[in-house]
C-alpha cells in the first residue's frame, strides 16, 4: 500500500505497524516521534498501531537549533 512518509510517497506492506515501519526504515534504536495524519502515535502504541493506505506519516528527531 502507498503511504506518505515525510512528504514522500512510499510503498509499504499492508497494515504495517509502527514498529515494523521503524525496522523497515532502519530507524531502530533512534530517538524519534511519529505522527500519522497530524495525530501523534505514542511510543506505547508502536506495536499495535497499524497504518492505512494514504496515511500521512511524519517521523521526526531532534537536531541542532536555536
Amino acid at each position: 500500500m502507498q503511504v506518505i512518509i515525510n512528504g514522500e510517497s512510499r510503498d509499504v506492506p499492508e497494515a504495517i505497524t509502527a514498529t515494523q515501519l521503524i525496522d523497515l526504515l532502519e530507524l531502530g534504536g533512534k530517538r524519534i516521534a511519529i505522527e500519522s495524519n497530524q495525530e501523534i502515535v505514542p511510543r506505547s502504541a508502536f506495536e499495535t498501531h497499524s497504518f492505512k493506505p494514504g496515511d500521512q506519516i511524519e517521523i521526526v528527531q531532534a537536531i541542532g537549533g536555536g
Binding site: N6, L27, I32, V60, Q61, I63, G65
Partner: peptide, 13 residues
C-alpha cells in the same frame, strides 16, 4: 535549545 525536524529516511542509519 534543539529543533524538531523530519528524520532522514534511508540515509546513513
Amino acid at each position: 535549545t534543539i529543533a524538531v525536524r523530519r528524520s532522514n529516511i534511508g540515509q546513513s542509519p
